[in-house]
Amino acid sequence: MTQGDFGVRAIRADAATGTHFRYFDFVMAAFVTVLLLSNVIGAGKVAELGGVTFGAGILFFPLGYVIGDVLTEVYGYARARRCIWAGFVALLFMALMSWVVVSLPPAAGWLGQDAYETVFGQVPRIVFASIIAFWAGEFVNSFVMARMKIWTKGKALWSRTIGSTIVGQGVDSLIFYPLAFLGVWETRQVLIVMATNWAMKVAWEAVLTPVTYAVVGSLKRREGVDVFDTGTNFTPFRTRV
C-alpha cells in the first residue's frame, strides 16, 4: 500500500484491529474534553469583536473537528467512530447533570441560583439540537476524511481536512440552527447566522492547518503506521474497532 505525506508504513484499517496505540487514549480524552468545555463554557456567552457578534464557543468548538480529523487520519474511521460515540454519551450525561443540578432547590442563603440558571440552564430545544448536530456532523466529517484519504492516496492532507470540515460543519450547521432557532428567530436571521458561523468554522480549520500537519506527522511517526480505511464498514451504529 502507498505511503502518504509523512513516509511511515501504510496499513489497512482491518490490519490494525487489536493494535494498542500509545497515544490514542490521550487524543480521545482531548476530543471529549474540548467538546464538553466548548459546550459548557463557550455556549453561555455571546461576544462581539470588530462589530461581529458570535457565540464564544465558536472559538474552541472547531478544535473538536480538528482533533476528529487527527483521529481519523492517524487511527482510522473505526477508532474515530468510537470517540464520537464517547463524546455523544458525554454530552447526554452533561445535559442530564445540568438539568438535575439546576432543578435542585437552592439552600437558604445560597445566592448562586440565578448564575447557575444563566450558564447551565440551557433551553432543552437548543441542547437537543446541539447533540444531534454534533453526532451527524462528526460522522460525516470522519467519513469524508477517510474516503478522501483513499482517493488522494494519503497525499495533500490539507485538502481532506478542509474538505471534510466544509461538509461536516455544513451538516452540523444545517441541523443545529433550524432545530434550535427556526420559529424563534426570523428565518432570514437563522440563515445569516448559520452561513456566518459555518464560514467562520471552516476558516478556523484552514488557519489551523499547520497545527494539524504538525500533530498528525508527530503521531504517525510515533505510532509508526499510517492507517487507510480500505474495506472499512462505515456504519456509524457500532463502537467495535
Rank of each mutant, 00 (worst) to 15 (best):
V66N: 10
L37W: 04
G154Y: 02
A56Q: 08
R82Y: 03
G55R: 04
W99I: 01
A13E: 14
K45G: 08
I67V: 15
F134G: 01
R188H: 10
G112K: 02
V74R: 06
R12F: 03
G231Y: 05
E138N: 07
M148W: 14
T235E: 02
V46L: 11
M1E: 02
T72S: 14
L49S: 11
G137K: 06
F181I: 10
V215F: 11
L157P: 00
S130M: 11
A86D: 07
V52G: 00
R222Q: 13
C83M: 14
H20P: 03
V40T: 10
T152Y: 14
V101D: 11
V227W: 01
L219V: 05
A43M: 12
G7V: 10
R240L: 12
W185P: 06
G55A: 13
I192F: 06
T187M: 10
I132D: 09
G51E: 11
T152M: 12
G57P: 01
T230R: 08
I162G: 02
A199Y: 09
Q122W: 03
L191T: 14
W85Q: 13
R125P: 05
K153D: 08
L157Q: 11
V167C: 11
G154A: 04
V34W: 02
F54Y: 15
Y213S: 06
L37A: 14
M145P: 00
A206H: 05
V171E: 10
S218M: 12
S103H: 07
T239N: 00
T72F: 05
A47Q: 11
F139Y: 14
Y23A: 10
A133N: 05
V102P: 05
L35E: 01
G170D: 01
F228I: 09
V40G: 01
A78M: 07
W151M: 10
S38A: 12
G154V: 09
A56D: 03
F60C: 09
G112A: 10
V70I: 13
A156L: 13
T161A: 08
R22I: 05
T152G: 11
M97H: 12
R81D: 00
M145T: 02
L96H: 02
T19W: 00
G55L: 13
G64T: 14
T72D: 01
S173C: 08
L91G: 06
M94W: 04
F237T: 04
V140C: 09
R22E: 15
V119C: 01
M148Y: 02
T232N: 00
G224F: 14
F54K: 04
F88K: 09
T230F: 09
K149N: 07
K149F: 00
A16F: 02
F176T: 05
T53C: 00
F26I: 09
G76F: 00
M97V: 15
G18W: 01
N233I: 15
T161K: 01
P106W: 04
V193Y: 08
S218R: 13
T235N: 12
A107Q: 09
S38D: 12
M28E: 13
W198A: 01
A95R: 01
Y177C: 03
S159M: 11
D5I: 07
Y65Q: 06
V102A: 03
M28S: 15
A203G: 15
G4R: 07
P62G: 03
L71K: 02
L111N: 13
V184D: 12
M94E: 10
A136N: 00
Q3L: 05
F139K: 09
V101F: 08
K220P: 06
Y65R: 06
W151V: 15
R125N: 04
F54H: 08
A115E: 02
K201D: 06
W85Y: 02
M28K: 15
G87F: 00
